[in-house]
Amino acid sequence: MSILKLHYEIDGEDFTRAGEASASVKKRLRQLGVKPDATRKVSIALYEGEINMVIHAHGGDIDVEISPEAVRMVLADRGPGIENIDQAMKEGWSTAPDEVRSLGFGAGMGLPNMKKNSDEMQIETVLGKGTTVTMAVYL
């Protein structure tokens, strides 16, 4: 069975472009006839991930694999890493700088929202090296 692979490079300097990857994936899932609910989950989880990569990690790479069973997303950055994952997963916890918060981001809902909208989620992080978030949404 074929798998559709998509790759996106996330520009860490440009807030206005965050969301391009999730929009592109959403458009494709719609054309594939994926159930609206699953499409929405992928789109939200991916957008949160993109925003995180821009806010915290100066961008990175996103790889998406679509198969008949699931949409698997790997978001890899070379940012500072997450010091305390348990804390980062708590709603409202944020390490986002003030200038980001003033734009309405950094409410501490990024990782919790990613968790909420995915069926599987793993975080691998190394301080000073970067973070890789792997998510899956079942179809």
Binding site: M1, S2, L4, R30, Q31, L32, G33, V34, I66, P68
Partner: peptide, 10 residues
């Protein structure tokens, strides 16, 4: 939607 069948759409 590209196709009624998911595999064909893929």
């Amino acid at each position: 939607k590209l196709d009624e069948d998911f595999a064909a759409a893929m």
